[in-house]
Lab assay of single mutants.
Amino acid sequence: LTVHVGNVTYHFDNPEQAEEWAKRMAKKYQGQIHVKDGQFRIE
């Protein structure tokens, strides 16, 4: 699973971990989480 934050990409084996990280990053950067094809993108 991949989480994109700006132009930085993080890889996770565990979906719960990826989702948790995406939520934390979205809160930190006050962005929206977009989920597409098993990838999380924070914008």
Rank of each mutant, 00 (worst) to 15 (best):
Q39D: 14
L1M: 13
K28G: 02
A18T: 01
N14T: 12
H11F: 12
A26F: 05
Q17M: 10
M25E: 02
G38D: 07
E20L: 07
T2Y: 10
E43Q: 05
K36H: 14
T9V: 14
P15Y: 15
K27S: 07
Q39T: 04
W21P: 00
G31M: 14
G6M: 07
F12C: 08
K28S: 03
K23C: 15
E19R: 08
V3Y: 01
Q17S: 12
T9F: 08
K36M: 12
F40H: 07
L1G: 13
A22N: 01
K28I: 12
E43A: 09
G38C: 15
H34Q: 12
V3I: 05
E19H: 10
V3N: 00
N7V: 05
H11V: 11
Q39M: 06
K23M: 07
G38M: 02
G31Y: 06
Q17L: 13
Q30W: 05
H4R: 14
E16F: 11
V8M: 12
K36A: 07
E20A: 12
E20F: 06
H4I: 14
G6C: 15
K27L: 10
P15V: 12
K23F: 06
A18H: 02
Y10H: 07
I33T: 02
A26E: 03
Q17W: 10
E43P: 05
N7W: 10
I33F: 06
G6T: 01
G38L: 05
A22L: 08
Q32A: 10
V5E: 00
V8T: 09
T2I: 12
E16M: 11
T9P: 03
R41I: 15
F12P: 00
F40D: 07
F12S: 00
T2M: 09
A26L: 06
G6P: 00
E43D: 09
K36E: 14
E20W: 11
R41A: 10
N14D: 14
V35C: 15
F40P: 08
Y29T: 06
V35D: 03
E19G: 04
H11P: 02
A18C: 08
Q17F: 07
F40A: 08
V3H: 01
A18Y: 06
K28H: 13
A22Q: 02
K27D: 12
R41Q: 14
P15F: 14
K36L: 12
F40Q: 07
T9Y: 11
G38T: 01
M25S: 01
H4Q: 13
D13E: 11
V3K: 01
A26R: 04
G6A: 05
K23V: 10
E19Y: 15
F12T: 00
K28A: 06
I42D: 08
K27H: 09
K28F: 11
Y10F: 11
Y10K: 04
Y10Q: 02
L1E: 04
I33V: 10
H34M: 13
K36Q: 13
E20K: 12
E20P: 00
H4K: 12
A18E: 01
V35Y: 14
V5R: 01
Q39L: 01
N14Y: 09
V3C: 03
R41N: 14
V5T: 01
L1R: 12
V35F: 15
A22M: 07
E43C: 15
Q30N: 14
A22C: 07
E19V: 08
T2G: 02
I42L: 02
H11S: 06
A26C: 15
Q32S: 11
E43T: 11
D37T: 01
I42F: 04
A18S: 01
N14S: 12
K28R: 11
N7D: 09
R24A: 14
F12W: 01
R24D: 08
Q39N: 13
R41M: 14
